[in-house]
Amino acid sequence: MGDPMKIRARMQGDVAEVRVLMGHPMETGQRKGSDGKIIPAHFIKQIRAELNGKVVFEAAISQAISRNPLFAFKVKGAKAGDKLSITWEDNKGDKRTDTVTISG
């Protein structure tokens, strides 16, 4: 399930500027909790952006990324009104997809 993402996508000229904020603990698997035990690794390993159902951006990431990560990227060939979906999947098999309409 995961927590909702905050996605901003707006056209700047002929390029869509996208900023995605994801709520995720991004545990490295090296940190100890207050009980002194290692907190198991829990991190997003795959992120994907789809423009009107077509993959435009895909990345494999790891524990090196901070908690609640922010990703910013640009998409060429997009236009206002297009649907942009962002999906992440973590190492525990949890998944989340959120969709926005690109604004002008």
Partner: peptide
């Protein structure tokens, strides 16, 4: 067509 563009990851402690 897959286009990987810039990613900005926020890492704090380091």
């Amino acid at each position: 067509m897959r286009k990987s563009l810039t990613t900005l990851a926020v890492a704090c402690a380091a």
